[in-house]
Nucleic acid binder design. Structure first.
Lengths: 335, 335
DNA sequence: CTCGATACTGCAAACGTTTCCGATGTTATC
DNA sequence: GATAACATCGGAAACGTTTGCAGTATCGAG
């Protein structure tokens, strides 16, 4: 059917091994025959079969990206970074959506392992039981975890400096003179969230005039935080500033505030986390903590490619990337 | 290294061919030996090597998704649908971002062809010259194009009914009593855009009391449409309703209106296209034309999987999915 | 009891590469 | 001028499967 290395060997009168060497810029092949082979290959429109190649080399030049949902703008950005990094080394990315369902997650892992990917980038193993985690750690291919503090030493990680982000948010609010501050976040015990929360709360408590924030736990999404904000303001009308654990939650706060006739930032200061694209589009443009999402994806597969090359001595690495306060228009001085 | 079919064959005392048959639910294998083999495979934790399998069967069970940028929420949604469809048949998706750059696009096509994907889903071939398009059409694997009207009969397509969407938008604005209407869209000659524009304009012109809309061409993004809106309202202050070619553009219009002290929908009605997630989050929640993005992705790879199975007689198919008016709060009756 | 059909299984080729090894021819060294 | 080093190339094994073909055993029918 398709034309193979044999065809170009026959056509150029050499052995297939010579063709292979010529094509792979290999040494030990006469420049003239090399050029000849290249010409023939070109003329026949020869396309090497990478799966045959992979079978013998044992490397597939592809990586798996297992995220909870690519529709989450955060992961889309990470995915783009990951794909670009892969491309820079002629690798590619297979996309898997787990919805954080442990079953799906393990299914995908099994599937991509059978396809012999060279590494896996996944965003969470929290839902997995210890047995599954052990299984993962010993699966033979490098795995890097996204935005999980390196709790499990078996895996490599790349993460944003979530704690520093919390600190930044606290400092900003403090500087603006706020004294009645709340923090709205997701379910308790969510790994990287606690880092943000810790940085935020501790900074507030350690201030010259310490403030003890009220922190509420809810769902991680728009509606959840809309409800959470209403609950908060019902019980704590004195609050003048809110730190939401991510931008989408902050949007929920914006909506709740609007419904209550509160103006942002005049009546209520608000700060988010992530700096997703729409945080600058919404009204008012959201002050937030920027997470280097693209860079995280990029760094993660760079790390994977490095690990894939050293089959022996594969010690997990960890990398934490800096965050940044993006001042827009959702925060004001307390009046 | 990894354990292979030979290991389980040796361990269970049968030939590798029997193992293969037993594992593939093949007929012609004794139920007892089948169970034996299955047990051994399980005990040894055998994982079939899909690349070896692919080498002999000629099918890789993977598809390529080439979009301009996965960070575009539209494509993220499509990707999710595509990935889910692939998963339903134990296939997977490799993700490629072309930025609509013809070079990148062809590079990716070449790359995934060498990896022997079973099909390609791509969002545009408009940037490609005829020679490249011909090359694509004859590449040997099925290709379906996303949201391109079937201009090139060589490819399969799945698309939303863009023209109907334009009609819907026009009817809605007409019903609300608007007489001074504008349409803001992307660069001229953009394939599927002209469908939306045509449906919109023709419906307006064909009304009992025809209205001749002003249509402006600009860039496809937030900033572009913000500028476009300002230009529009500078020259046509009489306008009371705007149809933006997509939601992100509509967001730009929202921003421009706000800057000008115009209130939506009181002073200006606005209708978007796409129904991306954030269109319900923004203020005011955007009335828009819903495109079945997830379903489009899903349908596209279903189509690919079908085509992949019939190696012969591969006639391009086309499928157009319905759109829907989503009424929210950015449109009001003309007062 | 024989024979053909049937169920099961083994053998070996094939898929398209890479790569080790050895063969040959060429050049440099003394 | 012999030998060693080197460059170039071909032969063949290997990667881990699937699958067509043939062989054997079992079984029912006549």
């Amino acid at each position: 059917m398709a034309i193979t290395i044999k065809d170009v060997a026959r056509e150029s009168g050499v052995n297939i091994s010579t063709v292979s060497r010529a094509l792979n810029n290999g040494y030990g092949v006469n420049p003239q025959t090399r050029e000849l082979v290249l010409n023939v290959a070109n003329r026949l429109n020869y396309r090497p079969n990478r799966v045959a190649r992979g079978l013998v080399t044992g490397r597939s030049h592809s990586f798996a990206l297992i995220v909870s949902d690519i529709r989450n703008p955060f992961f889309a950005e990470v995915a783009r970074g990951a794909a670009d990094a892969a491309r820079s080394d002629k690798c590619d990315l297979v996309l898997c959506n787990s919805d954080l369902d442990p079953i799906r997650q393990m299914e995908y892992v099994k599937s991509v392992l059978e396809k012999r990917v060279d590494g896996i980038l996944m965003n969470s193993v929290a839902a997995l039981n210890p047995e599954e985690q052990r299984q993962l750690a010993e699966c033979g291919v490098p795995i890097v975890l996204l935005n999980r503090s390196a709790s499990n030493r078996a895996f490599s990680t790349v993460t944003a400096d979530n704690e520093a982000g919390g600190v930044l948010a606290a400092q900003h609010l403090l500087k603006l003179g706020h004294r009645h501050i709340a923090h709205l976040t997701g379910p308790r015990q969510h790994g990287n969230m606690t880092d943000r929360t810790r940085g935020f709360v501790q900074t507030l408590l350690a201030a010259p005039e310490p403030v003890n924030p009220v922190v509420l736990y809810g769902a991680f999404n728009y509606e959840g935080c809309r409800d959470l904000t209403n609950k908060l303001l019902d019980h704590h009308p004195e609050i003048t500033a809110i730190f939401a654990a991510n931008d989408v939650m902050a949007f929920g706060t914006v909506r709740a505030a609007m419904d209550r006739g509160l103006r942002i930032p005049d009546d209520l200061s608000l700060i988010g986390f992530d700096n997703i694209e729409f945080s600058s589009v919404i009204h008012p443009p959201l002050t937030t903590i920027h997470q280097p999402k693209y860079e995280m994806g990029y760094a993660a597969v760079e790390m994977l490619m490095g690990l894939a090359k050293e089959k022996n001595n594969r010690t997990p690495e960890s990398r934490v990337l800096g965050v940044e306060l993006i001042e827009r228009q959702s925060c004001a001085e307390r009046h």
